[in-house]
């Protein structure tokens, strides 16, 4: 029972990371029907930039720097890789372009920070807390709080502020949003900035628990993509549930069956969702009454 509890706790932490990256996929998908296949690399860059900055500023001042860096990085991805594809109505140009940018970012990181896994300082005590025999790292709690907090803030912005409503309007109907005087190209750039910002935050949250390094992004980005499909690319908090499902099945499979198979159940679930509920477990078809 203790072991099960322990596995679930680890699963929740890693699942929240998947969830917050998947949330980033959603942010750009709703406004532009495109997404950044280099999202894992955005996370990796955020984490490595954080590692460098933290040496000068300490942990807490490092956070805003990383968030700002994430926004700039996302805007660059949109300008270089996505904007032209959207303008010309290309169905697939952005896919290759964002993958290419991801590879470039990875090579860049390998040259700056090397290929080895690096230890990231933890802002919180590294001794686990014990709840009824289950050990929880303080950083794991920080992951859950940070990920949920980020998603809530974005949601609050979308619902309360006029600029957030403009983002939702662009997601609803880009042409009509333009008629309202909303610069929808800017909204799409902004959604990419926000998306990379959440990934960068996920990077600094997860790095103290795992390790950081130029190759940390690939697997995370891909699994988070599976989570985005499972949770639904359009359904707000479906990605949290999707992330938890994937994270927990992974740790359970890794322990009870074999670590060699830990990726299989999640991917099987992905295939099942794609076959039977293509809009995601929690995705809803758009409300439309004629």
């Amino acid at each position: 029972m203790q072991i099960l509890g322990q596995l679930i706790v680890s699963g929740i932490a890693v699942g929240m990371i998947y969830g917050v990256i998947a949330f980033g996929y959603q942010l750009t998908f709703v406004t532009s029907k495109t997404l950044n296949f280099g999202q894992g690399e955005a996370l990796m860059l955020g984490s490595l930039v954080g590692l460098t900055v933290v040496a000068y500023t300490g942990y807490w001042l490092m956070l805003p720097v990383v968030l700002a860096f994430g926004m700039v990085q996302g805007a660059v991805v949109e300008r270089l890789g996505v904007r032209q594809a959207i303008r010309t109505g290309s169905e697939s140009g952005w896919i290759m372009a964002t993958i290419a940018l991801g590879i470039i970012f990875k090579n860049l990181a390998e040259n700056i920070w090397g290929r080895d896994a690096l230890k990231f300082p933890s802002p919180l005590p590294e001794a686990p807390l014990s709840f009824m025999g289950v050990n929880v790292l303080p950083m794991e709690i920080a992951i859950v709080v940070g990920a949920l907090g980020m998603m809530l803030l974005v949601e609050l912005f979308n619902r309360r502020s006029i600029h957030g409503k403009a983002v939702v309007a662009t997601a609803n109907d880009r042409d009509a949003a333009g008629l309202m005087g909303i610069n929808t190209s800017l909204v799409i750039t902004f959604s990419y900035a926000l998306s990379s910002m959440t990934a960068a935050l996920a990077g600094v949250l997860v790095a103290p628990v795992t390790l950081t390094g130029a190759s940390m992004g690939g697997a995370l980005g891909l699994k988070a993509f599976a989570v985005a499909i499972i949770g639904g690319l359009s359904s707000g908090f479906g990605v949290v549930a999707g992330g938890l499902i994937l994270g927990i099945t992974e740790t359970l499979t890794g322990y009870y069956i074999s670590t060699g198979y830990k990726d299989v159940p999640g991917l099987v679930l992905l295939l099942l969702v794609l076959s039977f509920r293509p809009s995601g477990l929690f995705g809803t078809a758009a409300i439309k009454k004629v």
């Binding site: 600029h163 409503k165 939702v168 309007a169 609803n172 042409d175 008629l179 005087g181 909303i182």
Partner: peptide, 26 residues
Amino acid sequence: SPEGRRVFATLPVQDNLLLGAFTRIT
């Protein structure tokens, strides 16, 4: 006011109207 109405389906009526005033509010 375009052909086919093109209202923002997932937003409340009041938010649709506020978005009409987006240029004024911003």
